[in-house]
Write a protein that binds this DNA or RNA. Structure first.
Lengths: 228, 228
DNA sequence: GCGTTCGTCATCGTATACGATTTCGGATAC
DNA sequence: GTATCCGAAATCGTATACGATGACGAACGC
């Protein structure tokens, strides 16, 4: 008897396989996803692959054009900005909704990650830095009391996945500031600050990264977002 | 030559067909979606139907169990609460991001809708009331400067679609209060109030509906959400 | 030389077919 | 009477097959 929860359907296999490739940058934005090739690669027929791609399409990771095919979504600058703004909103709230559930150990782990980030600052590697950044924030919002919001945050992270590396490489100065804000957030959580305060600061933290990026890359079209 | 934008693929036909049935309550939560039957109904094979259902699954409108089949998502009370909370967050922000783009005419239309709601209060029809409620809010956030956030709001509305009728029927008293708050929001928009203020009030407006529901149905587990 | 047209190839879209899994009812044992 | 086991029917999962569509390049006309 096979364990259904462990034995994945081929559609799911394909789904995860593709998703991972996108996340790991093996499939970069614009990359053409050919059904037949992927099917061959995974040793299955095209049908499960099609379904997998549909799901990825619904998540916004791939674009699909009828009778033409699928390709990894191009996240142009404007789309990037919009997603980041949405993420600042969602993540801020998720962090607040998670704060009360965080243990001392969670905070300790987060602080540890943040210290790693400080060390990384010297021989700065945007990619490593961003990975740590995600890890840090993931610890803070992972215990979000609202699972739906957690889903939304994670979906938005995935959407931005393929270019989240670049954020800090554009605006190197932002990284140092970022780790300082991280410590601020940790202190607020430790002190049981009002949830509204935690939400506000978390949201600003991410908006600030976005603003830094916008000012650096598109100083003309900085569109203010309400930071409360 | 066929117009590709008009000529829908069968998957898309199936997708819209099913989605509409769900929205119109013809397929109620728990309803079993049998691939073969739907395919027969639409005069197509099961393959496009499968894809359609995958998409709906990704949107959260249907649940899917391997080797068992799909059914319209049960939105139990807790899931309902979580989605509403997410919606209050998203909609509040979307409304704020839309406020500056609203014309006098938009506000006028919204006010008109709200006045209809007032009239409806007398011979109260939860279903009609909720439809108007959605229309009202749609006017307010439809010009959201951030299209991504608009997508998220609409997706969340769709998720709650099948039971949004019930909200006000549970807590009749809430409806009257709700229309008063609507007018408040309109005034804020007209006066060019700070976006933060608009966001705060919009968010509270929806949270209040949720709170009223929770207190009425589950007085034991009212879980506070940060209203700023 | 340049633009247009036509044909071919790659790829997608869907139907059909069949094996695999689950569900459910009835028969059997206790 | 109840619990358990077995088997058939319903339904899903995937492979294969073939027609349809669009992309690309070569040949042709100008």
């Amino acid at each position: 008897m096979k364990d259904v929860t462990t034995t994945k359907s081929k559609s799911q296999q394909a789904y995860q396989w593709i998703k991972q490739r996108i996340a790991s940058q093996e499939f970069t934005p614009g990359y053409r996803l050919v059904l037949g090739s992927i099917a061959g690669e995974l040793d299955m027929s095209v049908v499960p692959v099609r379904e997998a791609i549909r799901q990825l399409e619904a998540e916004g990771l791939v674009m699909f054009e009828r009778n033409v095919g699928a390709r990894v979504s191009m996240v142009d600058d404007t789309a990037y900005r919009f997603s980041m703004q949405a993420l600042s909103l969602l993540e801020g709230a998720a962090t607040a909704l998670s704060a009360r559930a965080l243990t001392h150990d969670d905070v300790r782990r987060a602080r540890q990650v943040n210290e790693l980030m400080v060390e990384t600052l010297e021989h700065f590697d945007p990619r490593a830095f961003t990975a740590l950044n995600q890890e840090f924030h993931a610890i803070l919002f992972e215990k979000c009391a609202n699972p739906r919001m957690l889903e939304l945050v994670q979906a938005e992270w995935a959407r931005l996945g393929h270019l989240r590396d670049s954020t800090f490489s554009f605006v190197p100065g932002r990284a140092a500031e970022s780790v300082r804000e991280h410590e601020n957030i940790l202190v607020l959580i430790e002190n049981g600050a009002p949830l509204a305060e935690i939400e506000k600061v978390s949201r600003r933290h991410r908006s600030a990264t976005l603003d830094a990026y916008m000012i650096h890359e598109h100083p003309d079209q900085v569109l203010g977002l309400p930071a409360f």
